[in-house]
């Protein structure tokens, strides 16, 4: 692989939840200033990867370097500093339900900057404009549709002009129009603000259409990494199974069962 300017380097990371191993020595790179899509079937720990990068979870072994810093070796306050450079769009939007849309977007700025209220209000209006929801500033999150909530969450994630934005399943549960809007927004934000974007998704078409770099995870390891075209042209049966949505193949249809012998020892 060619040498790329990596913003995030995941090196030999293993992670398990209880007895279930999620990753076994996974390595991947996320290039700076590009959109990287991490794809894979549900349950392969795509969201876990984002949480590992954000150091909300710690790996059992291996290191994750974000902009050259090992996020799991940082102290709490240093980690919080690094997190200010990250924005995350959660699957559910995760808007604070007791604040209005505008307050939600203003919150990270009020918390981390010394800007006065007027400046913050200006930035909030600006961010809302960029996601096309300037008219919704005074609504409560419960009054928004799913697509609107995700756009507001996106506006909040970019409130501090982060270097890295992570999208957790941005397209899930969205109608085709909202999907199109999100695809356009993610591309636009990435290019105009020179951000690095990581996108976790199992929507093959949308992800391949915007990603500069694609990783496919399955069964706890990276089965393919490369540009969208390289992935499309891949001959690997696992990759083909995932892209074409075939029900059975190298990735088994059946969830692994406990063997009789392991049950007997319980």
């Amino acid at each position: 692989m060619s040498v790329v300017d990596a913003y995030i380097k995941v090196q030999n990371v293993s992670f398990s939840r209880g007895d279930r191993s999620i990753y076994e020595s996974v390595s991947l790179t996320i290039p700076r200033g590009k959109i990287t899509a991490v794809m894979g079937p549900s349950g392969t720990g795509k969201t876990t990867l984002l949480r590992l990068i954000a150091a909300q979870l710690a790996p059992n072994s291996g290191t994750i370097l974000v902009d050259g810093q090992n996020v799991h070796a940082l102290s709490r306050s240093e980690l919080y500093k690094v997190r200010k450079k990250m924005g995350m769009l959660f699957q559910s939007g995760a808007l604070f339900s007791d604040m209005t849309v505008a307050e939600n977007i203003a919150f990270p700025m009020e918390e981390h900057t010394k800007l006065d209220a007027k400046t913050i209000a200006g930035i909030v209006a600006d961010k809302l404009y960029s996601v096309g929801l300037r008219g919704a500033a005074s609504l409560m999150p419960s009054e928004l549709s799913g697509g609107m909530a995700r756009r507001v969450a996106l506006a909040r994630a970019i409130a501090l002009d982060p270097e890295l934005v992570m999208y957790d399943e941005p397209f899930t549960g969205q109608d085709p129009i909202s999907k199109g809007v999100l695809v356009k927004l993610i591309r636009q934000l990435n290019d105009s603000a020179n951000m690095t974007s990581v996108l976790v998704s199992h929507d093959v078409e949308e992800s391949l259409s915007i990603a500069d770099h694609v990783c496919i995870l399955a069964g706890g390891r990276v089965i393919a990494e490369g540009s969208a075209d390289e992935i499309r042209a891949s001959n690997d049966p696992e990759v083909k199974q995932f892209l074409n949505g075939e029900p059975d193949g190298p990735v088994p249809f059946h969830y692994p069962e406990e063997s009789i012998s392991s049950r007997a020892t319980l």
Binding site: Q56, K81, R83, K84, M86, G87, F96, P108, E111
Partner: peptide, 11 residues
């Protein structure tokens, strides 16, 4: 609804 994680992510 991931609001707690969201706070953490915002530092």
């Amino acid at each position: 609804t991931e609001q707690l994680s969201s706070f953490e992510m915002m530092g």
